[in-house]
């Protein structure tokens, strides 16, 4: 079980967290203006890289805040965590 450094609470057991998939996928400004293909991209398609991945986590059994993390999906190591709304930090993969 990993430790995930919640940017509000500090490192906590992974079991306290809920995973939220890729970060920085904004809800479209005007969905009705999108083609079916564009809408499908928003609804169903996410990046799935092998390597650093900016993703969302929620400290669901703690402060219940959503935050973002860059995690290496090969090692599962967390390279950075940052609060929602903050820019993605530069990380070395």
């Amino acid at each position: 079980m990993q430790l995930i450094p919640c940017p509000w609470c500090g490192p906590r057991e992974e079991a306290e967290f809920h995973y939220g998939g890729q970060a920085h996928v904004a809800y479209p400004e005007d969905p009705s203006a999108l083609t079916d293909e564009e809408w499908a991209q928003y609804v169903f398609f996410r990046e799935n890289p092998s390597g650093p991945f900016a993703e969302r986590w929620s400290h669901s059994a703690g402060c219940r805040r959503w935050f973002n993390a860059v995690r290496d999906t090969r090692s599962h190591d967390l390279l950075a965590v940052y609060r929602a709304g903050e820019p993605m930090p530069e990380v070395l993969s």
Partner: peptide, 13 residues
């Protein structure tokens, strides 16, 4: 396991 991962390992819990 809930998260994306290519590490061929999961969490023991």
């Amino acid at each position: 396991d809930s998260y994306n991962g290519y590490g061929q390992r999961g969490s023991f819990h």
